[in-house]
Design a protein around this nucleic acid. Structure first.
Lengths: 156, 156
DNA sequence: CAATATGGTTTCAAAATGAAACCATCCGGA
DNA sequence: TCCGGATGGTTTCATTTTGAAACCATATTG
């Protein structure tokens, strides 16, 4: 839920991300936002979630700069929730979740939606993690380098 | 928590993924597993979570084939939890979360750990979503194509 | 200007969480 | 081999979060 906790001070970026968007509803709200959902009622209907929970989630995402509130695009007095740059930058994460789900959460004969590029109408490629030199690397070929203890710069 | 719910029948792969791993603890357990954590006590200490919750999460991840229980590598009678192929395939998702966190959840002067490839010891590249032709595409250049209503194949 | 749609908030029961106590097995040493 | 501690849990219970439903204020529509 929208955490009362102070912003995560973890040194691990994964942890900070998860602290913000690592709950089911937030990720699904973001997915809907990528799909063009903008209005409170649309989210609620699409996700089938309780209004109070949606309300806290939207507030949470706005607070964290992932969504922003803008005047309704149809000129009415209502407002809408749209992804910020920060929110759109979650694209790779959503694509990763999508591709993993496609690969591991469906039976071979089961149909699922597909992410296609609008230009060609063909499915996007599988995400690849690449080294700086461009070589694809697997998880076993990488390691997390802990942050060096910030050595206070010698006075100069 | 470990859901009692039957496996998600959503047609959206993102939703199925999120239904399985879309909670804070599961993702952090998986992150630790990528970092080589294998023992119950290690997870518990690393994550600082209650043992009962860790217990349900590990069971949940094992049930869903993301972790598997193997005999302890040190020959003791205890066992260990290691990522399966399915679990390792979450690499891109974790990398996505990491890179987003690095970019959006740290102050410019704040240090954070870094994922490097062991071969060169240099940070991996930023994930890119590419079209089938290899062109990088943004979220605005893609669309989710809903699954065609499975048309029962005409009898032949 | 009345009726309804929209976008919430409040209330309250049920479920999940987390801290702590408890417990069984394993291991290492005297 | 037997004792004490480490390991890997489960149980218990108070607190927190969730979710369904009722309620409410403003906006829009007829």
């Amino acid at each position: 839920m929208a955490k009362k906790k102070p912003p995560s001070r973890a040194e691990c970026p994964v942890e900070r991300s998860v602290d913000i968007i690592g709950d089911e509803w937030s990720l699904l709200v973001i997915r809907d936002a990528f799909d063009g959902v903008r209005r409170f009622g649309e989210f609620q209907k699409s996700l089938g979630m309780a209004k109070n929970i949606l309300s806290t989630r939207l507030r949470h995402l706005v607070t964290h700069g992932i969504l922003e509130v803008v005047p309704a695009s149809d000129g009415s007095a209502f407002h809408e929730y749209v992804l910020t740059r920060k929110g759109r930058d979650l694209f790779q994460v959503l694509v990763g979740l999508r591709q993993w789900g496609e690969h591991h959460c469906f039976q071979p004969d089961e149909a699922h939606s597909v992410l296609v590029d609008t230009e060609q109408g063909r499915p996007v490629r599988a995400l690849e993690v690449r080294s700086e030199s461009g070589r694809p690397v697997t998880s076993t070929e990488t390691v997390v380098k802990k942050v060096a203890e910030k050595k206070p710069r010698a006075k100069r």
